[in-house]
C-alpha cells in the first residue's frame, strides 16, 4: 500500500511541476491543482497509513485509531487550496481580459498577440 501512495504522490508532483512550468495560465492552474493533491496526500500520509482505524472513537471499548492530526490539517488545507485556486483563476482571467493574452511571462506578452 505504501508504494501506491508514495508513487501517486510522486507522479502527481511531477505532473504538477511540469504543468506549473508551462507558458499559459490555464495549465499553470491545472498544475497547481495537481500539486495541491500531491501535497495534501503527502501531509495526510505523514500520519502513516492505516486501514479500518478511523479516528472516530469506538463505543465498544479499546480500539486502535489512525493519527487524526494530519487529517485535521489536510481537511482545512483542502478547503484553503480551493480558495487559492479560485483567486488564481480570477487573477488569470483578469490578466487575460486586460492583456488580451494568457501568457504568464511579461516579455512575450509585451510583444503582442501570438496566441
Amino acid at each position: 500500500m505504501e508504494i501506491v501512495v508514495a508513487s501517486a504522490v510522486g507522479v502527481l508532483t511531477a505532473g504538477g511541476v511540469y504543468l506549473l512550468l508551462r507558458l499559459r495560465t490555464f495549465p499553470v492552474i491545472l498544475g497547481l491543482a495537481l500539486l495541491s493533491y500531491a501535497v495534501n496526500v503527502f501531509i495526510f500520509a505523514s500520519g502513516r497509513l492505516a486501514i479500518d482505524q478511523s479516528p472516530i472513537l469506538s463505543k465498544y471499548g479499546e480500539a486502535s485509531y489512525t493519527d487524526p492530526l494530519p487529517q485535521a490539517l489536510v481537511l482545512t488545507a483542502i478547503v484553503i487550496s480551493f480558495g487559492m485556486t479560485a483567486v488564481l483563476v480570477m487573477i488569470g482571467l483578469a490578466s487575460y481580459l486586460e492583456a488580451d493574452t494568457d501568457r504568464v511571462d511579461l516579455d512575450a506578452a509585451a510583444e503582442g498577440e501570438d496566441a
Binding site: 508514495a6 508513487s7 504522490v9 511531477a14
Partner: peptide, 8 residues
C-alpha cells in the same frame, strides 16, 4: 516527483 515520492 522522484524527490517527493522518495521522501514519502
Amino acid at each position: 516527483g522522484a524527490g517527493v515520492g522518495g521522501l514519502a
